[in-house]
């Protein structure tokens, strides 16, 4: 028998053929839409053997794409981390007017198409943008350069840390902080010794998701990048270029690194959920 039910509550048991049918259709759906695409990335990557795979990764343009991806994430993720902590501190520890609006605004980037997330910066800083001509006269280039990539990445990953921390810190309330203050701790001591240890797993969870998106973002960075090989190509953009040049093995080789990143993210995320499920529960409504 494929499926066992809990057997604890007979009224909730479905007939065995219903169970079998539902499990099979769920698994078939997931196989078709999740497992096969994932597997195919690795199969395509190794189609010409390990040598070709490795060559695609150590080729200079690929290395520079990997380098750039790491740099962009290394700037965007810490900034959003600091923002997330600051935003959730003022939202969860204080009562003020307009809190609901603020939370909505923080969530806003999630409901904006990645392409639009890129375009807004082009319209602001680009040559024909609002402050573009001024920036050009100062010799500052943002669009089609690294600052643009960083800005677009910050935008699309903007809410990740904050939205994990806000519900978590709201649930934890302010009593422990009050206790620390009464015992003579300063504001910073209270934050580092009491608040931070209490939110560290939620913080890690948010950073994990934020980082995965920062390294994998395509649409937004595609718009601001200008696709200059070896200069403004992140890994996902490099995958696109290789694919459009019909260099499939190389495209899938670079893609497989990103897929690996996704798998590591999933494993770490699942491990956090299993280990600290109760503490993180507030973040998953």
């Amino acid at each position: 028998m494929l499926a066992k039910t809990s057997g604890q509550r007979p009224a909730l048991d479905d007939r065995s053929w219903v169970r079998g049918l539902l499990i099979l259709s769920a698994l078939a759906f997931l196989l078709l839409f999740l497992v096969l695409p994932l597997v195919s990335v690795f199969v395509e990557a190794f189609r010409r053997g390990v040598g070709a795979y490795w060559d695609a990764l150590i080729e200079p343009d690929a290395l520079s794409a990997i380098h750039l991806t790491l740099i962009v994430a290394a700037i965007a993720v810490p900034l959003n981390l600091v923002f997330g902590v600051a935003a959730s501190w003022c939202i969860s520890k204080f009562d003020f007017r307009g809190k609901g609006l603020l939370i909505t605004l923080i969530d806003l980037p999630f409901s904006v198409s990645p392409v639009i997330s890129g375009i807004i910066y082009v319209l602001l800083f680009g040559l024909h943008g609002v402050v573009g001509p001024f920036l050009k006269s100062q010799g500052i280039q943002i669009i089609f350069a690294v600052p643009g990539l960083v800005l677009a990445t910050i935008f699309v990953t903007f809410p990740f840390v904050a939205r994990e921390l806000i519900p978590l810190m709201q649930e934890q309330g302010t009593e422990e902080e009050e206790a620390a203050l009464v015992l003579g701790a300063s504001g910073w001591q209270t934050f580092w010794r009491v608040t931070l240890p209490n939110i560290k797993w939620g913080l890690m969870y948010g950073v994990l998701l934020c980082n995965a998106r920062a390294m994998g973002e395509f649409g937004a960075v595609s718009v601001v990048s200008g696709h200059i090989r070896g200069e403004t190509n992140t890994m996902p953009l490099h995958v696109e270029i290789l694919y459009n040049e019909y260099n499939f093995v190389a495209a899938f080789s670079v893609a497989s690194v990103l897929a690996m990143l996704a798998l590591v993210t999933l494993v770490a995320k699942t491990a956090l959920e299993w280990r600290f499920g109760a503490e993180l529960a507030a973040t998953r409504h």
Partner: peptide, 28 residues
């Protein structure tokens, strides 16, 4: 509602589209 072998892995895998870069999903 059901328990079957590998259920936890399946559960974790459901989030793959959130984690997998869209360009990778696209070419795959």
């Amino acid at each position: 509602r059901y328990r079957f072998p590998g259920a936890k892995i399946v559960d974790a895998l459901v989030d793959l589209p959130f984690a997998l870069p869209t360009a990778v999903a696209g070419i795959a």
